[in-house]
Amino acid sequence: MTVEPATGPEPQSVLSPLTTAAIFLVATVDEGGEQSVRDLLADLPGLQRSYGFGAPDGRLSCVAAVGSDAWGRLFGGPRPAELHPFEELAGRRHRAVSTPGDLLFHIRATRQDLCFGLAAEIMDRLRGSVTVADEVQGFKYLDVRDLMGFVDGTENPQGRAAVDAVLVAGEDADFAGGSYVIVQKYLHDLDAWNALPVEAQEKVIGRTKLTNVELDEPASHVSLNTVTDEDGEERQILRDNMPFGSPGRGEFGTYFIGYSRTPEVTEEMLRNMFLGTPDATHDRILDFSTAVTGTLFFAPSADFLDDLPEPPAAAAAERPVPHTRTESPEGTGADGTLGIGDLNRSTAP
């Protein structure tokens, strides 16, 4: 069941339940393509309704998010307080790469054809205005397992806890109802992974493979992704990871996508994984899974998309222009006049 915040701007469908199909589209905005992107973002809720109307049981939804480099190109005025480029992490053995991405479209449904149709419409609208950096079609695998054979997403917050963990509130009032989202595409070496005994796999993950029971393993993937605040309370994110792959190409992976009220929670988890902790030099799952992308975005509220801020040029034109009087020696202006009413106008940055 989708949970909406009690008050404040309406979020996008960030809190929608997990689905059986998804498409993740990451794109960069071409020079001169800003207006086409703005037009698409404004029309996106209507496109989603149109494609989903004939299949209400399909639960079609789409979350649009914008990266740090593109925000100032698309919108004038303030920007989300914690929006910044994804920070690359270079550990002793493994690296979390930072890759380009101005736009993220996270399209979900119970049917892949609905995801496909909406993705095709989005790209038709943006053709010539953006360059696709990555496209992944995700699917539900067995009983919500990843391709390594373990249940994924067990610890997602529910209800009010999900709202508190995921949606920006009064700490950044201009962007209340929005959410930060980090995506990473991981490729798995399944031959090496499946060569491990099940018991060894369970120690790496920190859960039993068959029954999904958490184990007491301080250096496990589960432990390294459990972070707490100064009071010992767990800080949570909302994961909507999906398996993807191509057996013909020998490609098997997990698309990680984590929504959070502040990106620092997900970033701390990633630091634990790649840089290590006192209990572990690194997350041992990285010995079998390689991150090939990494990007940070902000998904603004649905109200924000419904009433986009002015573009940067228009917003700048509306700002008051400061006026400073030019003083010249002996009361004369640079052109030899008395300088009465002579103003030196400079445009605000």
Rank of each mutant, 00 (worst) to 15 (best):
M1G: 14
Q12R: 09
Q12T: 13
S16P: 00
P17A: 03
T20Q: 11
E31R: 15
E34N: 06
V37T: 01
R38C: 05
R38H: 09
D39V: 05
L41K: 05
L41G: 10
A42V: 04
D43M: 12
L44A: 12
D57N: 13
L60W: 07
V66D: 06
D69E: 15
W71I: 01
R73D: 12
G77M: 00
G77L: 00
P80G: 03
R92N: 01
H94F: 02
R95F: 05
A96G: 01
V97M: 07
P100L: 09
F105H: 06
F116N: 05
E121A: 14
E121F: 00
I122D: 11
I122N: 09
V132M: 15
V136K: 05
D143C: 00
D143I: 04
V144T: 09
D146A: 06
F150E: 03
G153A: 04
T154L: 09
E155L: 00
P157G: 11
R160W: 11
G178H: 10
I205W: 07
V213W: 00
E217L: 01
P218N: 09
A219N: 13
H221E: 12
V222A: 13
T226G: 04
E230C: 07
I237G: 08
N241L: 03
P243V: 11
G245F: 08
I257L: 10
Y259I: 06
S260P: 04
T281E: 08
D287P: 12
S289D: 03
A291W: 03
T293F: 08
E310G: 08
A314M: 07
A314V: 15
P320R: 14
T337G: 15
L338A: 14
G341T: 12
D342G: 06
